[in-house]
């Protein structure tokens, strides 16, 4: 959740940073200057403890105590909200730079061509530039998301019941420290693996057009391997064309 919020905000920030408007530019610059400077741990604690500074948050008449709509900070910013806020803002600052890098990597000629075709700005950004930028954004982006996943262990400091916090609570009770940490490790590995598999398919999707032949999905690779083995059983000794094609089609560094 913080990942998608963070990346959404990050995209907006990156676009603002690259826009010609000096206001958008400086707002987004200050945003990620600030949120890159503050450690995540400190940020999460500040959000969680905001209630000490401003007991009530709401809309009202400035410089008076009259609220039109008001909430107690403590109820508004729960542990969960504090964690999401902190992680999203932190993530947005980092992903903005990744996305900006990706956008800068798109050939200038693409901008010229879309300008020459009179494409409206939102089409240029969403349909021409970002899909191409995605190719260089994705590997870094997934790094960040996986980092974020493990970064959630930081919010255990505000007693939010995420994976690591729960593991700690249990081993404090039953003293099985190493086994429970191992359980946590296994869960982190499973979640990261799921994300890595997702990464493969998302990257493959955006490789359309960039590679002449897309890399086979594991399923396709397995099918091809089976068919090759099968053919070999039929005619022992002759190399099969399926196996050769697979090698000659894709270029590897």
């Amino acid at each position: 959740m913080a990942g998608s919020l963070g990346f959404l905000l990050g995209t907006i920030l990156a676009l603002a940073r690259l826009s010609k408007s000096p206001i958008l530019n400086s707002v987004s610059w200050s945003f990620f200057w600030f949120f890159r400077s503050v450690p995540l741990l400190v940020q999460v604690l500040i959000w969680y403890n905001l209630g000490y500074l401003y007991p009530r948050l709401g809309f009202g008449i400035p410089f008076t105590d009259t609220y039109l709509v008001g909430f107690d900070t403590i109820t508004l910013i729960s542990q969960f909200a504090a964690a999401v806020l902190g992680l999203s803002l932190h993530q947005a600052a980092y992903s903005a730079e990744i996305i900006r890098g990706g956008i800068l990597s798109v050939d200038q000629g693409q901008l010229e061509a879309s300008a020459a075709l009179g494409l409206p700005r939102h089409v240029r950004v969403l349909q021409i530039i970002l899909p191409q930028a995605a190719r260089s954004i994705l590997p870094n982006a997934f790094n960040e998301i996986i980092g974020l996943l493990k970064g959630t262990s930081i919010v255990s400091v505000i007693a939010l019941g995420e994976l690591f916090y729960v593991a700690q609570v249990i081993y404090n009770r039953n003293q099985q420290v190493i086994p429970l940490l191992l359980v946590a490790v296994i869960w982190y590995i499973i979640l990261t693996t799921v994300l890595s598999i997702g990464q493969f398919y998302v990257e493959r999707h955006f490789a359309r057009g960039a590679e002449r032949v897309l890399p086979p999905t594991p399923l396709q690779a397995a099918r091809r391997w089976i068919s090759v083995q099968w053919a070999r059983l039929d005619e022992p000794g002759t190399p099969t064309s399926a196996g050769l094609d697979a090698k000659s089609e894709s270029f590897r560094l």
Binding site: D107, G109, Q110, E112, A113, S114, A115, A116, L117, G118, L119, P120, V123, Q127, I128, P131, Q132, F206, R208, G209, A210
Partner: peptide, 28 residues
């Protein structure tokens, strides 16, 4: 942008959109 559509440009380096097919490039 509107006035530009009256003038088509063909570039030295083609500048086709690599992530779109030939037909999508044209129809975009």
């Amino acid at each position: 942008l509107t006035r530009r559509t009256q003038v088509g440009v063909v570039f030295q380096n083609f500048n086709l959109f690599p992530h779109l097919t030939a037909a999508e490039n044209i129809a975009k």
